[in-house]
Write a protein that binds this DNA or RNA. Structure first.
Length: 696
RNA sequence: GGCGCGGUAGCUCAGGUGGUUAGAGCGUUGGAUUCAUAACCCAAAGGUCGGGGGUUCAACUCCCCCCCGCGCUACCA
């Protein structure tokens, strides 16, 4: 890492449609901030870039739902996130936004640069069009029945119930969320980025060149490359976004994932209008993206290809993506309000920023998904931050005030004539060796993005300090050898000072508190410590210390009980973001009796059932329909086992055109009720009826 | 179904080109201590390293099969 002259560090641009929760923080912003603080302490030239991602259909959808213009909508969430980051102490050099003028220009230039090389593919295809509103419908504006799980509210790009990714044309009964009408297919032109043409280059650059990346990141990328890449459309028909900078592109905007990562560049431009280029084009600059695992593909495959295509840009040197954070054993969920919101945390537990940083780093999902629990939070704060770190600093302060009136005892050689002094000397040597070892391990871990380990080694300094005091027992020596006590406490203060330096990237508030207590900014020692990676001298003899203050307070049971309670009744405090998921689905357009009577609905009895081979969602059912039986495939394998299906009566559409799936023809469709949580339940008559009975 | 990542003490996690009694922190228990936010320090208990095969003088570490978690992907009337 010494080969690089400067650093460009980015943290994923949060999407401006809701507040931030601890999952976001643990995934990207906290590790990035810790790393950046470390670099700054070393004296490196670093820019830490972030901002709100404010385009895309989800924004327009959200705005519509709140009854405001997209602009007002993103203003609100941008403000909310910016403030939460600031209040929490994430130290961006700039927190920008993709709706800025600079970004519009940058993204358009970027597009043009690739366009001028004739790299894009132009293609006209049929897309759904809402005739009443006169607009093309982006994937997410179309809702229909998911062909997989039967969810009647699946989006055109993905069914959020079963997670299947879809294309709008797969939806059954598509309807526009704008007008409620059935959309029609109409041709429209779009531009595609030829990812496939970068496949070989990516393999060389990434697979051959970056085996040093985290295994989860590397493995995921390799998996994608092995599956083969396809051109991706990078424009949309929308009125919110960055206009495609071409004469024949009225009503077209850049697709959000195309413009968002360029936001890193525009934000840098905004921050450094005159010399932004050296942070993006100089090979001696190290570019690092901090993201969550959901973003791996964009940052490791797509964005690098874009940068490569645009030419003369540097590429990410590392992308330390984290896995996900769970909460109390459950996935974080915005719609169920199962989350710890950052702004609420800061309100409910004021002055406890370090506590959240510490706990989130200690369980940082570096290699696998992690779980945040309030009990664990309490335990870690109380038994590690308070009992080990806070207590060590405090007892040193108290001892120095007690025996030396708050004046740093002078350091000097301790003549080691008697056994007692020899013992102190050897304990000092041992402590010093251990401390230096931990400092080295801490910095090594930081360089390799292992923040859990780094923080552990940081806390280890306090552990060693505690042991040093317990072993040397200055309070006993005070009765017989004050000179020795002075030496011991002088050294203990040195350790405290070094802890102030060491904990700065992890616990900035604690670091500040220790500096106040030492009555010194430790300015001169900072870069020394972080560059030499060993204990440094800091405290001057006869220097007057500040007053002792407690670093951290214990977390009481009542404090966390309140938080746990809140999570137990999640529906009460509705999530600040409305989603379609928690609403009862809107009615479909009205039909006439004739429409209904076209359906032949019948009841039959399942005579046999088996799991479809090579499918984990399909069951193959044999249904007695009173007419000799028929085979029906149904995507319910996640809800019913074959065994429990046998003998059950089911309601099915009897005159639906047969459809082949995975080589087998399905002769009908089983009707299911979908519960709020997405669970499917059979629709059955309350009593047994004879097979073939009709429903009307 | 395919692919990726993971499955090690109660909890959070280390580890290893295969080789003496598998490690740490927290928690628990016992002891010691009083400078300190009943904190610190010492010690102990606690694991057939997801399961089953195989290779080997020797596997938690390599190979095969299976199970579980998370993610991507396919099928999805």
């Amino acid at each position: 890492m010494t080969d690089f002259k400067r650093y460009t560090i980015t943290a994923a641009l949060p999407y401006a449609n809701g507040p931030l929760h601890i999952g976001h923080i643990a995934g990207a912003y906290l590790p990035a901030d810790t790393y950046v603080r470390y670099l700054r302490l070393r004296g490196e030239d670093v820019v830490f870039i972030c901002g709100s991602d404010e385009h895309g259909v989800a924004i327009t959808l959200g705005a519509r739902k709140e009854g405001v213009q997209p602009r007002a909508f993103v203003d609100k969430y941008h403000g909310l996130m910016k403030k939460a980051f600031e209040d929490f102490g994430i130290s961006f050099n700039i927190y920008s936004r993709t709706s800025n003028q600079v970004h519009y220009e940058t993204a358009q230039e970027f597009f043009k640069k690739i366009y001028d090389q004739d790299l894009f593919i132009e293609e006209t295809s049929d897309q759904y069009f809402d005739e009443q509103e006169g607009i093309f419908l982006a994937d997410r504006y179309i809702i229909g029945t998911c062909p997989n799980c039967g969810n009647t509210n699946a989006y055109g790009d993905q069914c959020e119930k079963c997670g299947t990714s879809l294309s709008p044309k797969q939806l059954i009964n598509p309807r526009s969320t704008v007008s409620g009408n059935t959309p029609v297919l109409k041709p429209t032109k779009h531009w595609y980025f030829p990812l496939d043409k970068f496949e070989n280059w990516l393999k060389e650059w990434l697979i051959d060149g970056h085996k040093d990346w985290k295994t989860n990141v590397f493995g995921q990328c390799k998996s994608w490359l092995d599956q083969g890449l396809q051109p991706r459309s990078i424009t949309r028909d929308l009125d919110w976004g960055i206009p495609v900078p071409l004469p024949d592109a009225k009503g077209k905007v850049l697709y959000v994932w195309f413009d968002a990562p360029i936001g890193y560049i525009s934000a840098t431009k905004e921050l450094k209008p005159n010399d932004w280029e050296k942070y993006w084009k100089d090979p001696e600059t190290r570019l690092i993206h901090f993201i969550g695992k959901d973003n791996i593909v964009f940052h490791c495959i797509i964005f690098p290809s874009m940068l490569k295509a645009a030419g003369d840009y540097i590429l990410p040197d590392n992308v330390p993506a984290n896995e996900f954070l769970n909460l109390e054993g459950d996935k974080l969920s915005t719609s169920r309000n199962h989350a710890v919101w950052l702004h609420e945390y800061l309100q409910d537990l004021p002055g406890r920023r370090d506590e959240l940083r510490y706990v989130l780093t200690s369980i940082s999902p570096e290699t696998k998904d992690a779980d945040f629990t309030w009990k664990d939070y309490q335990q870690k704060v109380n038994s590690e931050m308070v009992a080990i770190l806070g207590n060590f600093v405090n007892r040193v302060m108290v001892l120095v005030w007690k025996y030396f009136d708050g004046k740093v005892p002078s350091e000097h050689e301790l003549p080691g004539t008697d056994d007692r002094r020899k013992r102190v000397l050897s304990l000092y040597t041992q402590a010093h060796t251990d401390l230096n070892k931990s400092v080295k391990e801490m910095t090594d871990a930081l360089k390799n993005f292992r923040f859990r380990e780094a923080q552990f080694q940081m806390l280890n300094l306090a552990r060693i300090g505690n042991k040093f005091l317990a072993d040397t027992e200055p309070w006993k020596l005070a009765k017989e050898d004050m000179e020795a006590v002075g030496c011991i406490l002088n050294y203990a203060l040195t350790v405290v000072g070094n802890i102030a330096l060491a904990c700065e990237p992890f616990l900035p508030d604690g670091a500040a508190s220790i500096r106040r207590q030492l009555n010194s900014e430790l300015e001169k020692s900072k870069s020394d410590f972080w560059k030499k990676e060993e204990l440094v001298h800091i405290v001057l003899p006869q220097h007057q210390l500040g007053k002792a203050e407690l670093l951290y307070r214990n977390v009481e049971d009542t404090e966390i009980e309140k938080q746990v309670e809140r999570l137990k009744k999640p529906q009460q405090a509705a999530a600040p973001v409305a989603t379609t998921e928690n609403a009862v689905k809107p009615l479909k357009p009205e039909i006439v009796f004739d429409d209904f009577s076209k359906l032949d609905i019948r009841v039959g009895t399942v005579t046999s059932a088996e799991k479809m081979e090579k499918s984990n969602k399909l069951l193959k059912l044999r249904v007695d329909d009173g007419l000799g039986g028929r085979t029906i495939l149904s995507g319910i394998a996640l809800h019913y086992t074959p065994e429990e299906m046998v003998g059950k009566q089911v309601t099915f559409i009897a005159n639906l055109a047969p459809r082949k799936m995975m080589g087998i023809e399905s002769q009908g469709m089983i009707l299911m009720a979908e519960d709020k949580d997405g669970k499917l339940k059979l629709v059955q008559p309350t009593d047994i009826v004879s097979p073939g009975s009709t429903v009307s």
